[in-house]
């Protein structure tokens, strides 16, 4: 094992995921302490045309010493099976100090598979590694855990919060080497197609004002109160996972790990506790107002203004107050 750091670059439809830049920034911090090189691992398929070309262009700004590319038709879109086989091969052959991935719907799937297949330790929900100590955020953001980084090659699935995306970018392009892909026969998992979201719905990623509702909404009937508030503010309603799981809003309105990332000027988070799965997607909001009955809700740590009142009482009152202020 050497001190090199592998960073698995996530991409969907040719776009490199922000979390991959966060992981590269973490890798930069690690090699500053211990030496070694940063190697970005890019899996994809030239056959997928546009996405691979666009990917190759973006690879130029990855803050890595080298980029190793693996080009195979079975790697065109992510499947844990084909990606897992390819990555397991390279990790086994050239064991690095650490392999960094995003703790996402892509990276988390890979990380578990690689840990079991290669018998390597795995740390998920990791925010930061410094001075040989890892720090993770768990229990919906209510607890932190830290410990010594294992001495052997370690797999780390990163969450946002420890580093900025810009820190993972560089003007100096990494040296690109195309490596052969071996043994991808007999695959049992196949990517078929992307499911396009229903057309016509509001794109919450571009809204200036968003009213986000969480578990505190309690009943479907209460969704009307949130819609009324959003209307008064000239914005739209979005939600955390429990609300979408109930079918009270379509998945296009989901904010978080499996949903969209939002960057509004104003985000009013109502009855949302602030679990990392949600908050990682709202940090780009210019101003957050949080309303939650639980004073320990982590959402208050990222909000500018907060109130410990029942969202069900606040929504009609705030709609009324907004209308009054607008009218005046």
């Amino acid at each position: 094992m050497n001190q090199d750091i592998f960073v698995v670059i996530e991409h969907v439809r040719g776009q490199v995921a922000d979390i991959s830049y966060v992981a590269l920034a973490q890798a930069q911090a690690l090699v500053k302490e211990t030496g070694g090189k940063i190697i970005a691992l890019l899996l994809g398929s030239d056959a997928s045309g546009i996405s691979w070309d666009s990917f190759a262009i973006q690879a130029r700004n990855l803050a890595a010493d080298s980029a190793w590319t693996f080009d195979h038709v079975a790697l065109g879109e992510f499947t844990s099976e084909a990606y897992g086989k390819t990555l397991a091969g390279v990790i086994k052959e050239k064991p690095p100090r650490a392999v960094l991935l995003g703790d996402t719907t892509v990276g988390a799937e890979l990380a578990g598979l690689l840990s079991a297949r290669l018998g390597l330790p795995l740390i998920t929900s990791c925010m930061n590694i410094a001075g040989g100590t890892y720090t993770c955020k768990i229990c919906g953001g209510k607890m932190m855990v830290s410990g010594d980084l294992p001495m052997e090659t370690v797999l780390v699935a990163m969450i946002p919060g420890g580093f900025k995306v810009e820190q993972g970018k560089s003007d100096k392009a990494p040296e690109v080497t195309n490596l052969p892909v071996r043994d991808l026969g007999g695959l049992k998992v196949a990517f078929k197609q992307y499911i396009e979201p229903e057309a016509g719905d509001v794109d919450i990623a571009t809204q200036k004002v968003l009213v986000g509702v969480g578990r505190g909404i309690e009943r479907q009937d209460n969704m009307e109160l949130a819609k009324e508030l959003a209307e008064a503010l000239g914005g739209a309603v979005c939600a955390s996972r429990p609300v979408v799981d109930q079918g009270w809003l379509p998945t296009t309105r989901l904010v978080g790990k499996s949903g969209k990332t939002i960057k509004p000027k104003l985000y009013i988070a109502l009855g949302i506790s602030g679990a990392p799965e949600h908050t990682e997607a709202v940090t780009g909001s210019e101003m957050i107002i949080a309303v939650n009955k639980d004073p320990a809700a982590p959402i208050f740590e990222m909000a500018k203004y907060g109130a410990e009142v029942d969202m069900l009482d606040l929504m009609p009152a705030l709609s009324e107050a907004i209308r009054k202020v607008k009218g005046g």
Binding site: E10, V12, R13, Q15, A17, I19, E77, F78, T79, G102, T104, T105, V106, K188, V189, A190, F191, K192, Q193, Y194, I195, P197, T251, T252, L254, K257, S258, G259, K260, T261
Partner: peptide, 13 residues
């Protein structure tokens, strides 16, 4: 679920 609110159809044996 893929990142960014995208969904995909997969097939598994």
């Amino acid at each position: 679920d893929y990142p960014g609110g995208l969904r995909a159809e997969m097939e598994v044996t």
